[in-house]
Amino acid sequence: MPDFTRLIAALLLTCLSALAHGEKLRIVTEPWAPYVYVEEGQAKGFDYEVTVEVFKRLGVELDWQFLPWKRCLAMVDQGLADGILDIFQTEERRKQLFYPNEPLSDVEFVLFYANARPHSVNSLADLRGLTVGTSPGYAYASAFSESPLFTREPAPTHEANFGKLQRGRIDLLITDRRVGRYLSKNLGLEQQVSELPLVVSRQSQYLAVRRSTGMEVLMQRFAAELRRFKSEPAYAALNARYAGVGDNFRSTVEQQERSTP
């Protein structure tokens, strides 16, 4: 066996042996339905269930905690958690975390507005003078995050952002398309809020782990097993089960999106 292969195997065994002796992999995340959420005390969601299945195949047990996003980031940074689910890649985060080379899902950040106070936005320049609700700790496109044209106002939860939008405390809010649709439906706001066709940014979501011994190899194994799972009927069935969750919005919005170049 080549020396490099022996080293990789040793690192992986070091990581997995610790997990095998009752030390579960501690993963934190914020509820982000329909990707990961808790319903009637049961954790579920497309990315959550995919992650559970992949680690099950790797023989790794998981310990989950659902917390506000900024707390999740702090726990990983402080070594209080091993991994974080549904995180975007940024240059700064890659210095602290190992990412697999296979994403779990892709998201599209769009803007939502209250129907009682509509706004026409075709570019970020159209946000001049407005206040946009954001979520603390989330990484948006730099053109959005650094623009001096408008105000970004964070809220403690995604639900709180929709409440502020409904009450007119913010002009718009930004969130993932499917997350916004899911929340608007579950909060009973489908007839009161709409989404704009402009896509502010598209990003991939990952499971990432802190930089420690054996974790990089674990992510390589995770990526390989994730790709294998994606080619199987079980993955297609799971994808089909969540395909419609959060997608039932308003037909007028769908028509706008189809007509957008």
Rank of each mutant, 00 (worst) to 15 (best):
S251F: 09
D77F: 05
P261T: 15
V36H: 11
N248L: 08
A224H: 09
L12H: 13
L80I: 10
T29A: 12
L172V: 03
P31L: 00
L67Y: 09
M75N: 05
T175M: 01
L111I: 07
D176F: 00
S204E: 06
D63I: 01
A240N: 08
F4R: 10
S17N: 14
F55D: 08
F150I: 02
Y206G: 08
A43M: 03
Y99M: 14
Q96A: 07
Q96H: 14
L172W: 01
V193Y: 08
S17Y: 09
A208Q: 14
K56V: 00
T14C: 13
W64G: 01
E190M: 12
D77I: 02
M215Q: 14
E108S: 02
I84C: 12
T213F: 12
H119A: 02
G41C: 02
L149S: 06
E216F: 03
L196R: 13
F55M: 13
G79D: 10
A143H: 02
D176E: 02
D3R: 07
V110H: 01
I170S: 03
N248W: 09
T5M: 03
Q203W: 07
S212G: 06
V193S: 10
P2R: 11
T252E: 12
Q89Y: 13
Q256N: 12
G133V: 05
F249N: 10
K230R: 13
Y206N: 13
A208K: 08
E49F: 00
S123Y: 10
M1A: 04
S194G: 14
D247H: 08
R177G: 03
G137V: 09
L218T: 14
T90S: 12
L130M: 08
R181F: 04
N101Q: 15
E39L: 02
R241P: 10
S201D: 15
P156L: 11
L73H: 11
I8G: 11
L226M: 13
P34N: 00
V121C: 07
L11I: 04
E232L: 03
G246Y: 05
Q203M: 07
L67G: 12
K230G: 07
L149Y: 08
F88P: 04
P156D: 09
N161H: 02
L67R: 08
S123A: 10
P197E: 03
L172R: 08
T90W: 11
S184K: 05
L238T: 05
